[in-house]
Nucleic acid binder design. Structure first.
Length: 679
DNA sequence: TAGAAGCAGATTTTT
DNA sequence: TCTGCTTCTA
């Protein structure tokens, strides 16, 4: 038992041994957070705490499974009862599967994702930006404001519209027995809030609570945690106020800053030894974050050598920036660095394009993390919609998505007719087709009518299957989704995605022999992209996406005022700075920060100053001054000794020289301007 | 019905 | 500049 604590430093061990009462573990970046809490979990079990009375909540599936793995490898042998490690949302799902009836609703609900939510809202035609409506509704739900209250308290006309959409949306969800991400937290809270006996029961079942990334919890999650602590106060939260970067999404940094006020007699353990970065990198991070006022006082101590200097790239424009970054990466890889240890980070996704071009030119394989998520891809959502329809044919929403995909001559006009008729009759489209078939025959174009009935029949046949085993093969055989996508642009990638999904489905159906389709559907909606960072690729992603990761060689690009910190009406400069802190602390050995003098963005060229964060981090930068203006411009004809005559397609820079991208009769080459002559 | 052309809008996004 | 959505026309 002693030996599992042996690998911990004194502070970590102190945290791991503190079992009873509220505990805040302030875990700085790279301070061994996961190690500490997984050891704590193992320690509790070894000390006789009933495993299934321990609940550990995380934000991502990835974090949950990583912690599960590490904790179990410490405990060793398999246990009869297992501690529950789950995301907040998954926990909400499990809870609702048991107690949804307390709200008079059926527990066979289906979870919808953000995309689905927006599609539903769109149908209400508020004429407001749909993401605004979706976000505001999210806020209402997270603040536990009911639609009626939202409507009566709305002052501005737009908010009346949003609140009304909220009301319609809630009705729609109820009618179709759908649940959104916010509901997975809000509904369990409501149920527990209405029934104190139940709250007691639940909190007695989970007598020990652990929460990961506590700085990212929002008000609702905080309230839910309070409910879970109704009959005890054994709550251990782990987090770092300096890494709170989701404020814009409702995360409340006060939760962590005020933990000791909210939970009486809380013990606070600070983990400040950093095992990740060189001391130069750490110094920069510490120096930067010190400019924030709203934070807990602490400073990370290095355990590593000084290391290399942090390099600052000051470039003329984004072309030069991507060129220099790519060249440096190229030389790292050429000298034996594992591409997997290299990453490029940026504040906004729009910067990925220029860097991708640079990487492509150098033939450096990269992996974009973030981007479009697997389950959000059109082809995957199509299949999911088919499955949802099989599970519940009254799902008008999914029906709309695939009613004419692959094309089956049911056009927009027909779809509009169907949906407005169903609305009039106050029934689902499926029910309408079933019950009013005669009426529809006269009402719809012949071809569409026939095709529609054929489509419904196929769905019904698939719904008859009692086992989900092989279901996916039947779906493909019936609807030929793969065939359809194989004829569309980017078919290779899309077909590969479809195959991947089919594989996932088959895996699931084999692992869960008696599982229902509904269980599969809810499971995948809560699944985000598990990291598929593979060996041969460098990683390219937003700073948000990089949270929790670490890389030997790190590049942060676009470090300019206005881009990073991103300045706008809603800017929280401290949060931007924390983002800078998160970025820097991802680096283990080598950090390169890049800024440009001008960047093309949103259709115009913006002139930029280097970010204040560079000087705040105690770094300085010199922009390389060029020898002279280029004599060349796009379209000029030039001659090269070996390649002959070509046309300039682009003018960029390399250090103090100009780099010309020249098209020599179809072959594109990058050449330093001094090696060519004007024709 | 389906492809083409025209037009607004463009932070970050664990679930 | 580029994307995704609406509107237009064969």
């Amino acid at each position: 038992m002693k030996n599992i604590l042996e690998t911990l430093n004194p502070e970590q061990a102190d945290a791991a041994k503190t079992i009873d009462g509220p505990l805040l573990i302030l875990a700085g970046a790279g301070s061994g957070k996961t190690k500490t809490i997984t050891t704590r979990l193992a320690y509790m079990i070894e000390n006789g705490i009933f495993p299934s009375s321990i609940l550990t909540l995380t934000f991502t599936n990835k974090a949950a499974s990583e912690m599960r793995q590490r904790a179990f490898s410490l405990i060793g042998e398999s246990l009869d009862h297992l501690p529950l490690l789950s995301t907040f949302h998954k926990f909400g799902l499990i809870f609702l599967k048991h107690y949804m009836n307390r709200l008079g609703r059926d527990n066979s609900f289906v979870i919808i994702d953000t995309d689905d939510k927006k599609k539903i809202l769109k149908a209400f035609e508020t004429n407001l930006p749909i993401s605004l409506v979706a976000n505001e509704i999210s806020k209402y739900k997270n603040n536990l404001i009911e639609p009626e209250e939202a409507i009566s308290s709305a002052l501005m006309p737009n908010y009346k519209l949003i609140a009304t959409a909220y009301k319609k949306y809630e009705l729609y969800l109820k009618d179709n027995n759908l649940v959104d991400f916010d509901d997975l937290l809000a509904l369990p809270y409501k149920i527990l809030d209405n029934d104190n006996e139940l709250a007691k029961t639940i909190s007695q079942r989970y007598r020990y609570i652990m929460v990961d990334e506590y700085q990212d919890t929002n008000d609702l999650q905080f309230k839910l945690l309070q409910k879970l602590c109704t009959s005890h106060n054994n709550i251990c939260v782990v987090g770092d106020d300096d890494q709170s970067i989701y404020g814009w999404r409702g995360a409340n940094i006060k939760n962590i800053l005020d933990f000791d006020k909210n939970f009486k007699d809380a013990k606070v353990v600070k983990l400040t030894k950093n095992y990740r970065s060189t001391s130069k990198i750490l110094k920069a991070a510490n120096s930067l974050i010190q400019f924030n006022r709203n934070r807990m006082d602490k400073k990370l101590d290095s355990t590593k050598d000084e290391g290399k200097n942090i390099e600052i790239f000051g470039s003329g424009d984004e072309k030069e920036e991507s060129y220099r970054v790519s060249r440096k990466i190229k030389s790292l890889i050429d000298s034996g660095t594992n591409p997997n240890d290299i990453a490029i980070l940026y504040r906004i996704n729009a910067l990925s394009r220029s860097i991708e071009e640079g990487l492509n030119k150098e033939a450096i394989p990269y992996k974009m993390v973030g981007g479009l998520k697997f389950y959000e891809r059109a082809e995957i959502k199509d299949i999911i919609s088919y499955l949802r329809l099989i599970q519940n044919p009254n799902d008008d929403f999914s029906l709309k998505r695939v009613i004419n995909r692959p094309k089956r001559s049911i056009g927009k006009a027909t779809v509009d007719k169907l949906y407005s008729l169903a609305f009039q009759k106050n029934c689902s489209v499926y029910k309408l087709i079933k019950d009013e078939n005669k009426l529809l025959e006269d009402y719809l174009p012949k071809k569409a009518f026939k095709s529609l009935n054929d489509f419904i029949k196929k769905l019904k046949n698939l719904a008859k299957k009692e086992s989900i085993f092989e279901l996916i093969d039947d779906v493909e055989e019936t609807f030929k989704i793969k065939e359809y996508y194989s004829l569309l642009p980017d078919s290779l990638e899309k077909v590969a995605n479809i195959d991947e999904f089919y594989g996932l489905f088959r895996d699931f159906s084999m692992q869960h022999a008696d599982a229902t389709l509904e269980e599969f559907l809810n499971d995948i909606t809560l699944q985000s992209d598990q990291d598929q960072i593979d060996d041969k690729n460098i990683s390219v992603m937003s700073i948000h996406a990089a949270k929790g990761l670490e890389f030997e060689h790190l590049f942060v690009i676009g470090v300019e005022e206005g881009f990073f910190p991103l300045l706008g009406d809603g800017t929280d400069l401290e949060e931007e700075r924390r983002l800078g802190y998160v970025a820097i602390t991802r680096a283990k050995k080598e950090l390169t920060i890049s800024h440009v003098e001008s960047r093309f963005y949103k259709g115009r060229r913006a002139h930029l100053l280097k970010s204040r964060f560079i000087s705040e981090a105690g770094l300085s930068s010199g922009v390389l001054k060029l020898k002279s203006n280029s004599n060349y411009k796009k379209g000029d004809l030039v001659k090269h000794k070996i390649f002959g005559i070509g046309r300039v397609v682009n003018v960029g820079r390399v250090k103090k020289d100009y780099k010309l991208t020249i098209n020599f009769g179809g072959t594109i080459k990058d050449i330093i301007s001094t090696f060519v002559a004007r024709v």
